[in-house]
Design a protein around this nucleic acid. Structure first.
Lengths: 228, 228, 228, 228
DNA sequence: CATGAATGAGAGTTCATTCAT
DNA sequence: GATGAATGAACTCTCATTCAT
């Protein structure tokens, strides 16, 4: 990366002697960064990721193209930030679904369902993930960032894994089941998002619930009814 | 689209007054169409879909860029044709896996595994499907073509569905199970292809076999062992 | 280099079955390549190399930007071609100056003077050389091309070197003298071109002749008069 | 130029009513100007002139980009100042080489060699000169500044000229010889710096010494040995 | 049918400079 | 004086598509 590239402003992080002046400056910068991200999000929702150019984002944000580069060093950093936010929202949703829920079986259901619902309701967040995980240059999305994003995704699945463990599954089995659940979820979401699932005249939600029922059956030892 | 665009040559279809001359002409055209598709396949396998330009395809096929448009009306039609072929190969593989297999349970296993393995071994064919089903203009992928491609995909899953029916599942249940199987398969393939599955230190093949074991358990009424 | 980059048309080289059709095509291509080079030359003469953009060249040539890339794979290739031509002209001039000149001393004088005069009269050709030898990415100017261009420059000095040898200087001395002559020439040209020489109220031509007189004196053993 | 542009701070020049307060202010400004120049120097040494942006300089100086314009009205003024410093160092070096050297012949040798060595050892200083004397807008390099820089360059050659005179050359001859020497030096440096001299498998230092020997031979009337 | 030059729009990125704070 | 966000134009290069020959 060119050393001359201006470092993107950190999102209200540095605690070093932040006088009221610096605080306001930082707040302003955050607001502007936000507005760029919002513009990027909206553009990408309407046009898809591939067809969204920096020019388009700038226009929607009310900036010139060059101004964007004050906040993000490259197009891919914009998407990295967007994906980061998306994963935060996902985690928040899962956390929220578990608040004050003591029952382990319910914890499995709720956390898994929260995950599924988040992407079912926000299919563009699914696109974000795919785009970054597939098509990006390794430049904007540094290995470190990639790692961090992976970790956030992983974190969103951890509660389910923990609840499966609490239900009695040994750790390797819990890990295996959560992976299979993740795959099943992604598969359903993809089929749903691409319209493929209509071929089968099925609803992804029903299929998800059926899978979940089986999973809980396996985990609790109660026979998942054959009816799925 | 400009109406003056030359209609792309159909692959040996028009039966209207085909004299020996026309037959030879058509055969030639088919051969050349083939060579273009082969070039496109190879380019796209090496470079990925996004980085494969018409220039690149033309070069590999030994044509000029203009010549491509004699055979395909647009870049997206090229990919449409490629996807069509891909689906034919998929169907062939599934058919082959079932040849001379009388046992219904084995038919479920074999057909499903053939499907999974096809895409596991040829991840670019997976890309093809995603690219066309997601990112394309409605121009290259007409509703009619879309329909036809869907049908071929559907056909590749039909043997599994039939075998499930033969194993005793009522038609709606067989349909439901094949859809879920499809989703699970797609999910595993996507995780595998994008490297996401490494996060979990799992092998997609093991997970696939576990799912298949459960499925067969449900279908036969024999309890799928909880161990997956 | 991207393999998809269209190879620039060769300048009337391939002798493989060139029918009248191909010949005309090639001639046309050459003419057009020429017009691009002429445009580039004129732009660069007026604006200097740094400030000449591909857009500028395209405009002057009456092409669109994209069209330029049919003929030259990069901006630097344009300059490479320009420099190549420049060096050919230089060599032609030196050759011409020696035509039918039997006297060795005169050969030294004429070849060296032709070299000097060429750049004195065409200072932009000097710029060309400097630009390419200093500022270029190694991409457009491949080591092979660089080598070739060096060789052409070298060739323009060879006659002088040979004549010095013929005058009696041993090869190492002839080489040394031609190198020093080259340096002196370049120095004078640079001072002249940048206007530095006016500081001294001297004319570069006079200084060149003085140097030449000394050189010939050394080579012939006749004392170069101290008066230079 | 916009008349509203704040005039760049002069380096401790204005003598108009400099109270102790103003003196300190000016000293501070000088220190900061210095740090900017140091940053510019380092950047330009590492990256070359073309690739050094104002951002880069600001970063290295620990300033923001806007602050630079408090001290220098334009990028080119920065380079103008750098060149000025460079010429001061050059003069210092020449002066130093002559300290306590009574012999005229030695004075010729030492001053000329100091000049040559300065640029041989600091090739970037050569770049500076070329960049400013060739490629600049007339804005950054005003005629007055140009004049001043020329004078400093001239001054660095004056000792050699004087020593040649002391050796017995009449003033016009001394001027002529110092100009030729300057040209020869520049030529050798350019060939050396651009790598062109390797074509001839010669060392610029040897050639320089040979030239110097001849020059001294001419100046003293002792025959420069033919051997250069 | 085939050519391949040409189009024209658009991509991401850079940069010297300005100016409200 | 210093900040640093913002400008606005420029940059090289790419690409699907068209069309006269």
């Amino acid at each position: 990366m060119a050393p001359s590239t201006p470092a993107p402003r950190r999102a209200a992080a540095s605690k070093v002697k932040a006088g009221p002046r610096e605080v306001r400056q930082q707040a302003l910068a955050d607001v502007r960064r936000r507005s760029v991200l919002d513009a990027a999000r909206s553009a990408f929702f309407e046009l898809g990721i591939e067809k969204t150019s920096m020019r388009e984002i700038a226009q929607r944000a009310g900036y010139t193209v060059g101004a964007l580069y004050s906040y993000f060093a490259s197009k891919e950093e914009v998407y990295g930030a967007l994906l980061g936010e998306s994963l935060e929202r996902l985690n928040a949703r899962v956390r929220q679904a578990l608040e004050g829920c003591p029952d382990d079986e319910a914890r499995v259901r709720r956390s898994a369902t929260a995950f599924f619902d988040f992407y079912r309701e926000n299919p563009r967040d699914l696109d974000l993930g795919f785009y970054l995980f597939q098509g990006m240059n390794p430049r904007g999305l540094t290995p470190a960032l990639n790692e961090a994003l992976n970790a956030r995704l992983r974190a969103a699945l951890q509660p389910t894994q923990d609840a499966l463990h609490a239900l009695g599954l040994h750790p390797p089995r819990a890990l295996q089941e959560v992976t299979a659940l993740f795959a099943h979820t992604v598969g359903l979401l993809v089929l749903s998002h691409t319209g493929r699932i209509r071929m089968f005249k099925q609803a992804s939600q029903d299929l998800f619930e059926a899978y979940l029922r089986q999973l809980v059956g396996r985990a609790t030892g109660r026979p998942g009814d054959g009816r799925t």
